[in-house]
């Protein structure tokens, strides 16, 4: 049996759910960033799979979108980790539950 498009989409859905699990259930800011990165990688896997299994895979459209998406994810990770360090400097915690100064 060679893998079909469905199998790749299910793996991508699994990775997305794992990323969502990390974002929703962990309280540490770095874990939340790791979850977001896993979700973005699942989206990239979808782009590549749809490009590979599409009816006209000659122009490398999916590959291009995945490349740009990786670049944007890298920028997001850099800014997010800088924000974690800045927050840690101010509050001496990275637990997102304790960052409630703006709560009314």
């Amino acid at each position: 049996m060679t893998p079909t498009l469905q199998v790749f989409l299910i793996i991508s859905a699994t990775l997305f759910s794992i990323g969502l699990l990390a974002v929703l259930s962990r309280r540490h800011a770095i874990f939340i960033l790791i979850g977001i990165e896993i979700m973005l990688a699942a989206a990239n896997l979808n782009f590549i799979a749809f490009w590979r299994f599409g009816p006209q895979p000659q122009p490398p459209t999916g590959v291009m979108i995945a490349l740009f998406s990786i670049a944007i994810a890298a920028a997001e990770a850099a800014v997010g980790l800088a924000m974690v360090i800045a927050v840690y400097r101010h509050y001496h915690t990275t637990n997102v539950d304790q960052l409630d100064q703006l709560r009314g």
Partner: peptide, 30 residues
């Protein structure tokens, strides 16, 4: 990520348990 973990080290280990609401949402989405 590893550098950030090392720079915010004093906080490591205080990550309290699992939030089962989040797990339920993730399983439902999956």
């Amino acid at each position: 990520v590893v550098f950030t973990i090392l720079l915010t080290r004093r906080d490591v280990g205080k990550d309290r348990g699992f939030n089962w609401g989040g797990a339920t949402v993730a399983v439902a989405v999956f």
